[in-house]
């Protein structure tokens, strides 16, 4: 039985298979409409994340399956003192597959070690968020047509931004990738993530300037400076507006730049940018649903 806790558990070949299934779903959706008939997905969300939960639920419904939701798990089972291990054992009695989000890092791994059904990590604190990375990879595949020879700018909260860490981990497995890490000093990429880049033989540049980096980028991945990742409110207020993408900053960007964002956006991308053909973040959310469909099929062993 397979789980998905960290994107790196999937080989490059398996990623290719998932992408190819997702592309087939995009082209021939009707073929997949009843693939999961009679199966149930349990979405266990111990911290609020409406969009990821809805994406999973939409994915399961489009496969003809059903959904059990514990949207406020944090205020039910956990509040009563139930361990993650017990929750996983209990849900295994009711559902066929689990998607779990939890504020504690490693909670989905604990669930996977105790469940008798596949567990998908839908985000664990500031740690992993593999299905967001699946969405990101399908976006890159569909919009750039390749995974090699890319200069990828990552901008915003690179310290706590789990989507950034997962995407870096996934992209280091391809060839000739250059990372441009754009963040305030306080929110730089942790050293262990930089080691992953250099150990894989890729280059990275650290900078505080979004504008100066813009002309070299093939992909710009914007992230939100998240209030919940700060211990200190003052720090949050000081840094939250540091890196805002607007139409002016895009003047010296490449014509075929792909602008990505895991969403939700607060104000780090001005609404006017949405009309630019290079803005791909809403498509990215749609691609996320297709990749979740492909993943559910894979983990349930349905062809």
């Amino acid at each position: 039985m397979r789980h998905l806790i960290d994107i790196l558990e999937l080989s490059v070949n398996e990623l290719d298979e998932l992408i190819s299934t997702a592309c087939d779903i995009i082209e021939n959706g009707e073929k997949y409409a009843h693939k999961c008939a009679g199966k149930k997905l349990a979405t266990l969300f111990f911290e609020p994340s409406t969009r990821t939960r809805l994406s999973f639920e939409a994915a399961m419904y489009e496969l003809g399956g059903n959904v059990l939701t514990m949207a406020d798990a944090g205020s039910s089972s956990a509040a009563k003192g139930e361990s993650v291990a017990d929750t996983a054992k209990m849900i295994s009695c009711y559902a066929d597959i689990i998607a779990m989000r939890h504020p504690k890092e490693g909670a989905p791994l604990v669930a996977a070690n105790n469940a008798t059904i596949p567990v998908i990590n839908a985000g664990d604190g500031g740690h992993h968020h593999p299905t967001q990375t699946l969405a990101d990879l399908l976006t890159i595949h569909r919009e750039k047509g390749r995974f090699n020879d890319l200069t990828i700018g990552l901008c915003g909260d690179l310290k706590f931004g789990r989507t950034v860490h997962s995407l870096i981990g996934a992209m280091t497995r391809y060839k000739h990738i250059k990372f441009v890490l754009i963040s305030p000093e306080e929110l730089r990429v942790p050293d262990y993530v930089k080691n992953i880049i250099t150990d894989a033989g890729h280059e990275f540049i650290e900078t505080t300037s979004l504008e100066e980096s813009m002309p070299m980028l093939d992909i710009l991945y914007m992230t939100r400076v998240q209030r919940e990742r700060f211990f200190n409110e003052e720090e949050y207020l000081r840094l939250k507006d540091s890196y805002i993408l607007n139409v002016e900053k895009l003047n010296n960007a490449k014509e075929d730049l792909v602008i990505m964002h895991p969403l939700p956006r607060v104000n780090e991308i001005s609404v006017a940018v949405d009309n630019d053909k290079r803005a791909c973040y809403f498509k990215q959310a749609l691609y996320g649903k297709y990749m979740r469909m492909a993943l559910i099929l894979k983990l349930l062993g349905i062809k």
């Binding site: 504690k104 490693g106 909670a107 604190g125």
Partner: peptide
Amino acid sequence: KNPRCISSTEQEL
């Protein structure tokens, strides 16, 4: 020692 780690709260882990 990471306070955000599940090992800081999960029983008997």
